[in-house]
């Protein structure tokens, strides 16, 4: 299977890096403008008919979103992962919702969690999990969840420390380390 897909990508004259491969499993990294072409080719020519997941990773140091599509073959259950890097500013990725209907939901989630636009997805403006979200998308790494949580939801009592031993000592007096039980001496 790996060889078949690698040949297919070579046929397309598309440069690619093999990240990892083992039996029934292949992970390739391709340029961002060729990713959709490779995915559709794998569907048509290699029988990768099932879209399992679209995931995104925020690589803020390199200023990119790394998107990964995971495809599975319904014939021999082999897996193909295709990764591509897209620029972080005003990120826009072609939608695959017309080919795989499942992609619509994944793309809506990524739109909400990372702010990645998917032109061509008919339902991308609908709320998925967050209703009425007003901040920057929460899964971006420049979003400070702790600061947001303290500002929005507050705290019952501010935490001065997180040491349970000190907490118990403050309430009940001195905390003594429990001595482990000795083994019974054999007679």
């Amino acid at each position: 299977m790996q060889k078949q897909i690698a040949d297919m990508i070579k046929d397309m004259k598309c440069p690619f890096d093999e990240v990892r491969s083992s039996r029934g499993y292949l992970h390739v990294r391709v340029p961002s403008d060729r990713a959709v072409e490779v995915l559709l080719g794998a569907r048509q020519r290699c029988g990768m008919k099932v879209l399992q997941l679209i995931s995104a990773v925020d690589r803020i140091e390199e200023d990119v979103f790394q998107l990964t599509w995971i495809l599975e073959s319904s014939d021999d259950r082999s897996i193909l992962m295709v990764s591509a890097d897209y620029p972080r500013e005003d990120c826009s990725v072609p939608s695959l919702g017309e080919v795989w209907p499942a992609a619509v939901a994944f793309e809506r989630e990524l739109r909400e969690m990372f702010g990645i636009r998917f032109p061509g997805n008919s339902r991308q403006e609908e709320d998925f999990l967050l209703e009425g979200w007003k901040e920057i998308p929460p899964m971006r790494r420049d979003f400070d969840t702790l600061e947001f949580s303290m500002r929005t939801f507050g705290q019952r009592r501010e935490r001065t420390h997180t040491d349970p031993r000190r907490y118990i000592a403050e309430i009940t007096g001195e905390w003594e380390t429990p001595v482990p039980m000795r083994k019974k001496e054999e007679k």
């Binding site: 999990l129 979003f143 969840t145 947001f148 949580s149 939801f153 507050g154 019952r156």
Partner: peptide, 8 residues
């Protein structure tokens, strides 16, 4: 520290 769950 979650963005989506209540604290109190």
């Amino acid at each position: 520290d979650s963005y989506n769950t209540l604290n109190v």
